[in-house]
Design a binder for these strands. Sequence first.
RNA 1: GGGCGAUUAGCUCAGGGGGAGAGCGCUUCCUUGACACGGAAGAGGCCACUGGUUCAAAUCCAGUAUCGCCCACCA
Length: 903
Amino acid sequence: MAEVTMPARYSPHEVEERLMREWLDRGAFRAASEPSGPTYSIVIPPPNVTGSLHMGHALNGTIQDVLTRYHRLRGESALWLVGTDHAGIATQNKVEGRLAAEGLRKEDIGREAFDRRVWEWREQYGSTIINQLKRLGCSCDYDRERFTMDDAYHAAVLKVFVDLYEKGDIYRDVYLVNWCVRCGSAISDLEVEHVERADRLYYVRYPVVGADDFLTVATTRPETMFGDTAVAVNPDDPRYGRYVGMTAIVPLVGREVPIIADEHVDPAFGTGALKITPGHDPNDAEIARRHGLPGISAIGFDGLLNEEAGEFAGRDAEEARAAIVSRLTDHGLFERAEEYTHSVGTCYRCGTVIQPLLSLQWFMDMKRLAAPAIECVEDGRVGFVPDRWADVYLEWMRGIRPWCLSRQLWWGHRLPVWYCDDCSKVVVAVEAPTSCPDCGGTLRRDEDVLDTWFSSAMWPFATLGWPESTPELKSYYPTSALSTARDILYLWVARMIMMGLEYLDDVPFRSVIVHPTILAADGRRMSKSLGTGIDPLELIDEYGADATRFGLLYMSSVQDVRFSAERIEMGRNFANKLWNASRLVLQGAHPEAVPAIELATPADRWIFSRLGVVSVELAQLYESFDFAEAARLGYRFVWNEVCDWYLEMAKSRLYGDSEAERLQVSGNLLALLERITGLLHPMMPFVTAEVYRNLPRASPGEGHQGAAGAGAVGADEDAVDLLSSRFPEGDPAWADADAESGMESFIAVVAGLRSAREELGVPRGAVGRVWIVTSDPGRASALTGEPGALRQLAGCEIAGVVCDEGDVPAGRFTSVDAPGLKVLLPLEGLVDVEKERARLMGRAEKAKADVARASGKLANERFVVNAPAEVVAQEQERLAAGRAQLADIARQYRERLGEELPS
RNA sequence: GGGCGAUUAGCUCAGGGGGAGAGCGCUUCCUUGACACGGAAGAGGCCACUGGUUCAAAUCCAGUAUCGCCCACCA
């Protein structure tokens, strides 16, 4: 390798921009239409076209990219399909806002022009979020970008609507729907967000006809009384039994309505009497249905009271409340009001309080489609991660209710429904009919569009070309995994499962990953309006994409987590660590070295044994979606094992005099680094790819066991691109339990020696000639086989190895314990008596505590009888070791300090 | 009203029946030829509370408290 010039600090932005451009230019993320081998596929939860990347997208994008890159490295044909959702209300609001800035309303320009404006808007801003995904390093197949309003997609949506209509699942009916006055549209039950609100409960008197009496009802919404069609009491309520069957007068309206008995009424609530407003309350509508009562609408789609409200007609319903109460007071019909906290439905898009209104809408009955969608989760064809979400899903699915599909918007998939002006014919068809098939009359198309989620429900197959039988559909459906936030489990995930089973006769994905919600640092939701949001792009700017990804993964354990910038910083430091490790290797390596594994020393055997284990574990973690643990493992292995120990130990050979050793250790270092880049690439694509491309390579045909992805070496460009390599597999031959336990001793010895030197104030640079005391030659060889490292790291040379401490020449030593052996460090003239006394006392305390605990346990007969043999044996070992250590300390105390160890 | 999750070091979080872990922060030292976004040595926890199961509980069970989320027709 020629001169390597690498800055001491990894600078992510230059690398990220350059590599991403290269990858995109050469189509590295493109998935073949008809791949020959195994495939892997993910469809992205399509963000709103109006959207920009937030923390949830960043985490979710990272997770999906880890999976895609991992499986791509596995040699699978990996497709990560991206796209955006037309997001009916959200987008329409945005464009209406722009019109408003020009002093226009959408009605001023008309539907067609408005549609054009939306498309223009989309041209201009619709790719923002997609570009932001690129900054994160997401390896989506950008050439296959889809939009839920693409022509082909639209055709698929119409086909499904018509089909479900013909099957009888979709129907039109008058029903109480959730009406958002601000959006001017119905929304589905799932789009209603309930929020707690401090309100008042009003007690209003309804005079009973033919009795000089009245019934007092409690209501939070007196303004709905204009729609009252009954007063209800509980049938078992003794207070009111005599009134049932009589009638009452609705105050201010004067309407005479029946007094009915219904189980639903809770005698304990309020007065036990309930006014029934079927036109504006779902419960009341239910009761009215049971009793055959009519519904009256007193509030219009504009949220204003209508002519039913008499003098209040034309006033905003909620705003008129006070006036109504005051008028009731005038009539002596208002009793009192009390403070009352309850939850009110609001529009999840704009927060406006929902007005339940009777309205003619299109609905979809979900029962038929739900059955197989329940089954496929029960039998495990679709799995949830974490799996408790399966229960949440199933519970909702079992109680599923009809879905209000129609939206009174302009932006969206317009219903393929026509009404005849002349007869009452309803035509539902994919192709626009020219005239009424029954009477030849003129047809009018339904003005409404479909709920955005109706088209989203088809995302896993409509994006792959359905209903055409495309090669993509064949290759990539069902998809492999779906990663999503939990708040769209019902809105989206459940509906995709139903639609997938209905139209492809197979589940849309095998696994649903429900990733955690990232909360603001103070524990609240991250939200722009609260000012608690953190922009992931700012993190990428400050720390780099790899750091952002790593930090997000690290904190993405199974539960919700508060965002901590320290985690991202940790990722940045880690990327920098990896970068600098590669600097050490590349700058220090023998100029002719190429990746080549030759297990020559205990450290070599140890690190490759560990590499093998870690390779398997990381693969398992990626496959089981445990990304937080994968991040931890990668971090620990690279930092605490490779950098802290192997690289440090390798230095003595790397900078040593032996050319052969230098070449040999260089080969190991390069091979190790090469594999690490592959292992970490799914999580940190940029820094790993950049390091990888700097590695020297064996010339073709030279054949050595070190080249990762040896089979992939082809064109020059590919040869240096980590994306074209293979996920590193460990060689089973590397497994070496002795090397691992030997290294355990080595690390304990070095740490112990350093600690002792520190505590005793041994001057830096002083070299100690240590004796190793052990009866286990394997353990000893971990030290004797690494003399250079021992000298470098602990400042010690080995004087000799003995089985028995008695064989060590007389002298003053301090001892360091390690698994399987003990090391004696000569003290000579440099012992500080006070320090050594403190040190020995400290060790003695600990040893005594060990002995006390172990002997206590072993004295307990029930422990000895019941505990597993190995646990008892372990305790016996502890006892023995503790006693030996104590004796040892006592002896040292005597020899060194000329005192007896205080007891 | 039902359900789920959380409660571990100053902070953010792992762990999950046999001697408490990480990162940051803190103390002391170190600008040695990968890295101060670094290195070395340390300090710092009755693992929310109360009971139970067990030879053994931070870990399993029950209950309590606090926080968060979801579902529900709380007028």
